[in-house]
């Protein structure tokens, strides 16, 4: 297992390198530069700025300067947040995004699995139908609609929760963003879980267990739940991606200084180093997640482990 994990990690290096090269070329190919504004500066001053940030060097030289820094763990200074390095910005933003994303994910899995399993067990009853109707609505309404509605209702009208992020103390400020992030995932996971649970409940080994007189709750708990969760597990990869992209929207709406917000601003501002830094960071995460999911798969499904 360890050998397998190490091999996979080694295999990730060329992937990451390719990502860096492509991202580097793409951000530099985008028209405009990090210091362009409606005011065009006098040529002398523009030259001074380009020299200070090495933007006057040929592209390959800039690339090797950059990659040299990255290998030493230095992602460079941000062009837009000039008092901060990219490392600092990611270091401050990622814990927040992680906290939000992980909490939302945990909430989505727990609630989604419970709701889905319940709907499957009570298949074709009123409960099942209403749960699935709610789930369908949850999938269809995008985050950028849910979030402002939640804010208007719970923060502006009722004033139960804070409307924004900065300056608000305590955990209350996490509530709305986490819900907004989790809702669509809850809905999706519930539907996934229901379908998979129905399949599992109809399978041979469940029929055998029933024939032996095992009760429904024991069947679900000890026999059906684990195999029924496999599709949910494989959905985790896309779900994490969806929460990461969803967090861009949620972070904007709530004004949360998370990674998603810096990524979007970085791209719009042509903040080359910030965008590249976040791309490298995200890419490493995705590689890591894929590896973890593969290993988890083996842990849950013995058939995969023994292959």
């Amino acid at each position: 297992m360890l050998r397998y994990a190490l091999l996979r990690l080694l295999g990730a290096i060329p992937t990451l390198l390719l990502v860096i090269v492509l991202a580097f070329l793409m951000v530099h190919a985008a028209p405009g530069g990090p210091f362009d504004a409606e005011r065009t500066l006098p040529a002398d001053i523009e030259a001074n700025i380009a020299a200070a940030y090495h933007l006057d060097e040929p592209l390959h030289q800039q690339f090797f300067r950059y990659i040299g820094g990255v290998l030493q763990g230095d992602l460079g200074p941000s062009y837009r947040y000039r008092d901060h390095t990219v490392g600092e910005l990611i270091g401050a933003a990622f814990p927040l995004s992680l906290k939000l994303g992980a909490t939302a994910m945990l909430l989505a899995v727990i609630v989604g699995v419970l709701v889905g399993a319940l709907a499957a067990i009570r298949r074709n009853t009123l409960l099942d139908r209403s749960l699935m109707a709610v789930a369908m609505t949850g999938i269809s309404i995008p985050v950028f609609v849910i979030a402002p509605v939640l804010v208007l209702l719970l923060a502006v009208k009722l004033q139960w929760l804070p409307a924004g992020w900065s300056g608000n103390e305590g955990l209350a400020k996490y509530f709305l963003p986490v819900i907004a992030l989790a809702l669509p995932q809850i809905a999706y996971i519930a539907r996934l879980m229901r379908a998979s649970m129905i399949d599992v409940l109809a399978s041979d080994f469940v029929r055998t267990a029933r024939a032996q007189g095992v009760g429904t709750s024991a069947i679900v708990r000890y026999h059906a739940l684990k195999p029924a969760m496999l599709p949910v597990l494989s959905y985790m990869g896309p779900a994490i991606a969806a929460i990461l992209t969803g967090s861009v929207v949620v972070e904007e709406i709530f004004g949360i200084p998370g990674l998603g917000q810096f990524f979007v601003r970085g791209a719009l501002n042509r903040d080359y180093t910030l965008v590249l830094g976040i791309v490298i960071f995200y890419a490493s995460l995705v590689v890591l997640f894929n590896l973890v999911v593969d290993i988890l798969y083996g842990a849950i499904d013995p058939r995969i482990r023994h292959q």
């Binding site: 004033q159 409307a163 709530f254 917000q261």
Partner: peptide, 20 residues
Amino acid sequence: VNHHVLTQEMTELNRYRAGE
């Protein structure tokens, strides 16, 4: 003095309405 960075005008308005 707190200068709150609020890039979305709508977010800013909601926070103003909420008295924040």
